[in-house]
Design a protein around this nucleic acid. Structure first.
Lengths: 255, 255
DNA sequence: CTTATGCATTGACCTCTGTCAAAGCGGGCG
DNA sequence: CGCCCGCTTTGACAGAGGTCAATGCATAAG
């Protein structure tokens, strides 16, 4: 059976569980916000203590396991959230099941579609994750009353749009080697490395393929080539160390 | 010589002309806004008369000829604008000159990068066009003081992001036939048709290729195939009529 | 109306990436 | 510690789309 369909089934059940199981009225809570890991990076950063308290009251914390899907492409938009911890993918699919990952989000990022009727893409946890979840209607109302929040959301959305458009160049005009090199550099810049300089990829080979618009076989071959050329070193299935960043950057640009 | 480079050269000169030649202090002007064709669709729609007057004072109207470039990828972001009339493309390129069109904008759309240091893509007129142009700094300041404007800008940016992500699915996962069919339907939905049902494409074959991540030859072959199959009819270089929308939609989805 | 220019089409060929199938191997479980 | 499952790698092959080159044909200038 297709792994992706498998995950989807599982997640559908789990999501229902999360929704039902969360204690109502228990928001992020002022006490949570005070020690929130992403308080200074997330969109709530510019709110004062009182405003944050008010936002708290409409939200709640939720834990996700790797593989769980929080929102489904095409569903009516009922939830938005801040990512407290973990990595998630945003994805869309064609009618016949081809998938494209349209974004990868990290701690402090915002997910969901405020001010819109439909969720344009699915959101699925790649690692275990924690969210600060808000009902969309209440969030929209709060945002409209707090321009500092909307401003921060606007900045974030503009940044997302820039990054997304840059990725279109990769999808439309780069070859497989350039695509893989670009992704490895991108992850290298965004993920923490251990002492040995090894980063743990949050994506399987199939997911890398889904981000780059390739097949798993092509991704595997390209990574193998880069290793054989001595530009990268592999450590297990998910570990990667950039050995020669300059040459890898040259590859990424097609030089 | 490469057509695209040629255009670029030409536009660089012309842009300078426009900037220097515009009478300073002559804004869109209250009298212009009153008869503005896009007043109710552009981001200024929710401003009251007085606020619109204030925004006017920092902007001015500018005319562009087809082929002129208004903003350059990577330049510092100094301008933003509303499109009054015409069609423009947003594009990025790799170091070695491969181009990807990352967006096509029409009347009432907003262009430029507010709240950011750099322009992430070039903006070039595909047809003759008119803009309502604002210096970025002044626009940013005005926007921060007028949450209704920022809200409208946020909605527009969220919509852009949705559309851009949907396009990523096309770039990463659709084949040439599906890409071309999708584009023709998209244009059919957004452009006015004459009595005969013929739409005038604002894009040359090369530009269609740059939107779809294909070569001009592949685009030409696919359009030829669709014509031979009786799904579309051609009228000159730019004219297209959708003959069988249902079958074309099936093509677009790969069915 | 005619001509010239440049965009568009068509053809031949080749390469890159996808497809299908089999083997390898990392990591969790017993 | 070893086994087994599922992800990953590797191989052989096919086909979609790119490349290079020549021809066709709108369109606008004369």
């Amino acid at each position: 059976m297709d792994m992706r369909f498998d995950l989807a089934q599982k997640a559908q059940d789990d999501t229902a569980l999360v929704m039902a199981g969360a204690p109502s009225g228990k928001g992020c809570g002022g006490q949570y916000c005070d020690r929130c890991e992403v308080r200074d990076q997330a969109i709530c950063a510019d709110l004062d203590e009182q405003q944050r308290g008010a936002l708290n009251r409409i939200g709640r914390r939720v834990s996700l396991q790797a593989g769980q899907t929080v929102m489904w492409e095409g569903d009516s938009s009922t939830l938005v959230a801040n990512v407290i911890e973990g990595t998630l993918k945003l994805s869309t699919s064609t009618g016949d099941g081809r998938e494209q990952i349209v974004g990868v989000v990290y701690a402090s990022d915002f997910i969901g579609r405020p001010f819109g009727a439909r969720t344009p893409h699915s959101v699925t946890a790649l690692t275990d994750a924690r969210l600060c979840l808000y009902p969309r209607g209440a969030f929209d109302g709060f945002a409209r009353e707090h321009p500092v929040l909307e401003h921060r959301l606007l900045q974030r959305t503009l940044d997302d749009l820039d990054r997304t458009r840059a990725w279109m160049l990769l999808l439309g005009r780069k070859n497989a080697r350039e695509k893989v090199a670009t992704l490895l550099l991108d992850m290298h810049n965004r993920l923490p490395a251990d002492r040995g300089g090894v980063i743990e990829l949050p994506l399987s080979r199939q997911q890398i393929a889904d981000v780059l618009g390739l097949t798993i076989e092509t991704v595997s071959r390209q990574i193998g080539d880069l290793k054989r050329m001595g530009l990268i070193a592999l450590a297990g299935r998910r570990g990667v160390r950039i050995v020669d960043a300059d040459r890898l950057e040259a590859m990424a640009e097609g030089e």
